[in-house]
Design a protein around this nucleic acid. Structure first.
Lengths: 337, 337
DNA sequence: TGCAACTATTGGAGCGCTTCAAAACCTAGA
DNA sequence: TCTAGGTTTTGAAGCGCTCCAATAGTTGCA
């Protein structure tokens, strides 16, 4: 670290006490004009920048929130992040970001690191950490989770209604005449279980229980592609596939076309998340839309309520998703029995 | 912030001095076994976690590097980030991340914030900050820039050879028989100028100077789409388009198809960056590949050399890109003159 | 002119940790 | 038993800032 001027240097330069400099740095209007200008001039002259470490240490709060994103490669999370960023900076809070790189260990390390930095609060997006770990963290600082639910009263959560989302997707396919509808799930990923459950429930609701067909995936393109290849190897293919997120849908789309199938001619495909790429004409994926930015915003809102102790009870938001039908889903072509 | 145990609490609990606890926290092997175990037991019992703020303040270094990513929505940067993360954690360094959200002001704020946190070094990926600002930052902490060059001796840079990249793209199209090759540039984005220059040089080299046609873009999908629409409105379209990055190529692809053109039947398209989506069969974009993870790795390497003062001269890496021909580029169809 | 009532400054005691010189404790050889 | 030489611990002085009680300086009004 290169030697930098300290508050004492500024104080000496401006011929005032350090406390006065401190006041100016926090709120210039609380200080008489003459001194204020002297201090500001000194700050400018020396190129002084307050040391945040010292400031946070002494003031016991950081005005910073830590965000742990499960995987930055998933554009869905980046959109959520947009919402978080907007809300946080509007409230004067700084963001510290960390990616879990899809690994639980890295996520854990990121959370610990934030706690060590004494951030005022933590937002976990799509975390795969186990509940105990999260609750434990929540004892040190307020925690809000996005895209996952938790029993604890300590942890707020912002969720999409996965049951409805899955229902919308399956209903859509059923309306198009499909019966053999397979599902590629997200493995242990956040929200995966609920989406799968929604799929199963809706299939049953339509009397399609015997057609239930769940393939395991992992919320990545690779996962979607290999699940599709499993399908391709089967003697009898489903007529439609509902993937638990867009990334997997993209991978499946890929593999399916590689296998010589046309979409939606031979097989319909619906994703989940409505990521930017899904919306592109070239992909034009039918998918379930979640109000991502709004989720980020609500997360910040909830977190601040905890930080400011405006609320001590638990808050659990569940937002309604909607279906966006594009061109990867089409009516089942009439065929002989 | 919730009250947490301090080093003094641990010292009292273990009946030793605070200095001893400090030693244990840094390197347990430097302390006699009996006390060490007592301290460790106390740490465990109290759930003690060292306060990083205090530690960094007292030790005057943070073992942390700050990364400012121009735009997290661009998967290219996330790949670079992968490389950075691997290299940094391997060396025992922590990462603090910030996104510029495509806004210069946010980037500036992120850099300032890192400097205020007294990170040991900063990596800027795709930064649009002006040189002076970056050089000024470099006076406070070592700075490495990725995907942009800088005159200063203080700042190391890791770059892709944009001239070669553009040449590869244009050569490829020329070999396919194209002559009317337009270029969508990245506006003021990092690397944009060099890619444009490479395009112009290569066009001239092929005696195609009169065909040079540069449309302005901004490295986003939207930008690519609107540039393509400009093209669509023209009486005479080029037969090929070289976009300055994949995101814009995707947007252009979109708009072009929307305009009723087939790709590559009616018009060929080449991108730049070889992002994951470009590689997907459904997009299958011809593009220029950059060794992204390697760039991240080299950036960390260079930064650590500065931090450890192993090197004080400037290091400028320029990596060779390669062309990946996929299915958005095809030979020019024979037509009457 | 004197004093209450403010407002503008300052001194100094921390925040929780590192660091290093000095103190305390050990060991082994004389 | 005593001591040189090594190892283990400790005390205390910071790191750069905040914050509060206390001091200095102003104003207004009787």
């Amino acid at each position: 670290m290169i030697k930098q001027p300290t508050m004492d240097d500024v104080a000496a330069e401006a011929h005032v006490s350090r406390a006065l400099v401190s006041l100016v740095m926090q709120d210039p209007s609380r200080v008489g004009q003459a001194r204020r200008e002297a201090v500001l001039a000194a700050v400018d002259k020396l190129g002084y920048r307050p040391n945040v470490l010292a400031r946070n240490l002494a003031s016991r709060h950081t005005c910073t929130i830590g965000i742990v994103i499960n995987d930055l490669h998933n554009p869905y999370f980046v959109d959520v992040l947009d919402g978080i960023e907007m809300a946080a900076t509007a409230e004067g809070y700084q963001l510290l970001l960390a990616s879990g790189w899809g690994r639980t260990r890295s996520e854990q390390a990121a959370v610990d690191s934030f706690l060590d930095y004494r951030v005022d609060g933590v937002i976990l997006a799509g975390s795969r950490l186990d509940s105990k770990t999260i609750v434990k963290a929540a004892k040190n600082a307020p925690v809000v989770v996005i895209g996952r639910s938790l029993r604890s009263e300590l942890v707020d959560s912002i969720n999409n209604d996965e049951a409805i989302g899955s229902r919308l997707a399956v209903d859509h396919l059923v309306e198009l005449g499909h019966k053999a509808i397979a599902h590629i799930d997200g493995g242990s990923g956040a929200g995966s279980a609920a989406r799968r459950a929604g799929y199963i429930a809706t299939m049953n609701h339509h009397g399609l229980g015997h057609q239930i067909d769940v393939l395991s995936g992992n919320f990545t393109e690779m996962g979607g592609a290999s699940a599709a290849r499993v399908l391709l190897d089967r003697p009898k293919m489903p007529t439609a596939v509902f993937a638990s997120n867009d990334l997997m849908a993209a991978g499946a789309l890929n593999a399916l076309e590689e296998g010589g199938l046309r979409i939606p001619g031979d097989i319909s495909l619906v994703g989940y998340d409505n990521t930017t790429h899904a919306s592109m004409r070239h992909m034009s994926l039918s998918t379930v839309h979640q109000p991502r930015e709004r989720m980020g915003k609500l997360a910040v809102e909830a977190l601040l309520e905890r930080i400011n102790r405006t609320r001590s009870t638990c808050r659990r938001e569940v937002l309604k998703p909607s279906l966006i039908a594009r061109s990867t889903s089409a009516p089942l072509p009439r065929q002989g029995p």
